[in-house]
Amino acid sequence: MTDPSGNLEIQVNRTAAGAQCWIRSTRPVHAASVFIGRTAAETSVRLPRLFSVCARAQAGACAAALEQARDCVASPLTQIRRERAIAVERGREHLWRILLDWPGLLGTAPARQDLRLVISETTRLLAALDAQGDLFHPGSEAPAELARQAVFDAAASALEAQLTRSLFGVAPTRWLDEVIDATRFEHWCRVTDGVAAPLLRHLIDANEAGLGPTDIAVLPDLPDRTLLEALTGPGAAHFVARPTWHGVARETSPYARMREHPLIASLLGRFGCGLLVRLTAALLEVATSFVAGTGPDQAPAPPPAQVNPPGTGVGIGRTQAARGLLVHLARLDQDRISDYRILAPTEWNFHPEGVVAAALTALPPAPDAAWRRRAELLITAIDPCVAFRLHLT
């Protein structure tokens, strides 16, 4: 199948009275309709192949939606392993940006060799977590022990060493324990020579840490029933393309997830909700995702709440993908898909009245080259997950 990612056209018109921003998306947000008529089993296998990024997050949301629609539940251990796999993938997605894009924002070469090592070791981790290839099949049961524990342990150790060398200067767990507020974070930025610290240090020294502040509220924890109504009601097609909550655009992002973490809360107090906080939230998620993905299986999670009476054939699945909340809706008729919808974080964050538009219009006046560089920094920090073109007038 072809990649349905599409792209974003971002137009900013700057005048003496201020800036205006328009965002046009060519993302085929209704691409999941290709699964109408397929069985639940076929869909769970084929749907992740439709996406070039966050395939396991897509698989996790798909499996959860189909399980709810079929009135079945994956074993608690399966749910835990799925979350571990999604955490590994979430960290890898952030590392793509950090290792490839962040150096270029300072005019230095991408850390391609570091990324190759990250991809190699995370691929081994994911293969060990899903040795049978059925972790994301509806109703699956994970084995009590990992079939490839030695492979998993070796990959986790190699990845930890790589993250220590290329990013944190210390092991990720130690970094999480020690870099807990703005003062310690700034000290870390100044004494560390990894890929991430130079950009963060530059933002502080150039007085650019607070660029792009917004007052866009984060997306609340919407109940499944609320999402079900929005995704099946008469305005469902529009909601998937340009979602709002209570008529207002919302944000779902690494910052939205991490805003109450002590480090982010401290940085907010010193620098505000701008560029530095957003980039740091992604870096923080690399460390927390490594811990979540490579640690032991935790206590079983409680089974998901059933929002529909048994036998209705409709299910909601959700997961936290790298860029924000990902929601799937599946409707089954005789175990075949009669409706399938995906609500992705890009549509929230790159809504024409959303956080990206607000951040760009908040940028202060500057010559074209400087303004474009700052705008691209902000777009990279919020991360569209697809290609974008920025037009300035």
Rank of each mutant, 00 (worst) to 15 (best):
D193V: 04
L125V: 12
G6H: 05
T15P: 13
P138Y: 04
S44G: 08
L343Y: 05
A230P: 07
L47I: 12
R389I: 12
L115C: 10
L8Y: 02
V291C: 09
R372W: 01
G274I: 07
G269N: 09
F35W: 13
T164V: 06
T108P: 03
A305V: 14
V248D: 11
L378K: 01
I80L: 07
P345H: 05
V73H: 09
I216M: 05
A55V: 03
P303D: 09
E160L: 09
I382T: 01
T123V: 15
A370M: 07
D101A: 01
L332S: 03
R116P: 06
R331K: 10
P384T: 05
A127Y: 11
L360Y: 04
G91H: 01
L176D: 07
E260Q: 11
A236Q: 10
P309H: 12
L228I: 08
E67G: 03
I119H: 08
A287C: 07
A65Y: 00
R82A: 05
T26P: 14
V34I: 15
A357S: 09
H202C: 06
R372Y: 02
F290C: 07
A358Y: 04
M258K: 06
N308M: 13
A206R: 15
L325G: 03
T280M: 08
L360T: 02
L146E: 06
A74V: 08
S157K: 11
L146V: 08
D3P: 03
Q68P: 08
H261S: 08
S140Y: 04
A322M: 05
V88H: 06
G317A: 08
G18M: 10
C72D: 09
Q20H: 14
F51P: 00
T288N: 10
W102V: 00
L105V: 05
H246K: 12
P213H: 13
L267D: 03
P223G: 02
A144Q: 15
